[in-house]
Amino acid sequence: MFSLDGLLTWSEIMIDKPFRPDRIRYWLKAYFFIVPSLLFVLIFLYYPMLTSIYHSFTDWNLAQAEWIGLDNYIRMFNDNTFRIALSNQLLFTVTDIVKSIVFPLLAAELILSLRETKLQYLYRTGFVIPMLIPGIVFVLIWLSVYNPSNGLLNHFLSFAGLNSLARPWLGESDTAIWAVILMGFPYITGLPFLIFLAAIGGFNKEIIESARMDGAKFRNIFLKMHLPLLAPQFKVVLLLTIIGSLQDFVRIIVLTGGGPGVSTTVPSLIMYNSAFKNSNYGYGSAVGIFLFVSILLLTLLVSKIFKSERE
């Protein structure tokens, strides 16, 4: 991707006559095309990110920043709420990984085992329909599903004669976190499903067919052939899910606001609240840096696991 292939013959000619005014003018034109991009990247991405490392060591209210050393980080690791948030995050990330693999992979395998291409197309389209609406509307729909008195879930339970099970799912601290996790069941819609579908659809059918001719069971074809071949896809899905999971607090803001109490709070929500609710931007920056380092380490870990497996 970063090679110098395919360069212009015209600019090759330019190279032979270095430092002529027209060559300088040509360079300036080339830079002119890049400057807008570069300015945006420097002002809105690099500058904030680098200053936030500094600000994480300060008590900062946007107007004034006072150097306080490691205090923000010490406070973070001693804070009981932050510890609860970490254990919630662990649960969210683990379940997000399971959610991004089990049902999407199952659905992709089932769809591709159909012999009717029309049926394949029908199911594939059906599962993708929810991608057409904005993600926040998806969360709001699920908020209404959990609505205690007028929600689909409780109405369904009373319809099925299970009145005693109905409860304010998002309002009780022992059910709230599981209600957030269960949002979006059966989790097929999304990128992992499309990734698995594309990969399995692209497998060499002759090899798999000949294995079946030789009497291989579906279970063995899946375990011995599909799973190992899907390693690159697992890696991508795992990375996407982990990165997404550590950043995703929008669903939590809308569904529970982190409550009841702190039962569904996560570190990224603490980052948001301490900065934008309590004007404690220094502490918010420190939590942000902590999350950035966590994501970096987890990304390296996943890459390493998949690298050593290939060898």
């Binding site: 942000g288 999350l291 950035f292």
Partner: peptide, 9 residues
């Protein structure tokens, strides 16, 4: 850089 973590700065 995950974009969500850039929101404070």
């Amino acid at each position: 850089i995950p974009s969500m973590l850039n929101i404070v700065p």
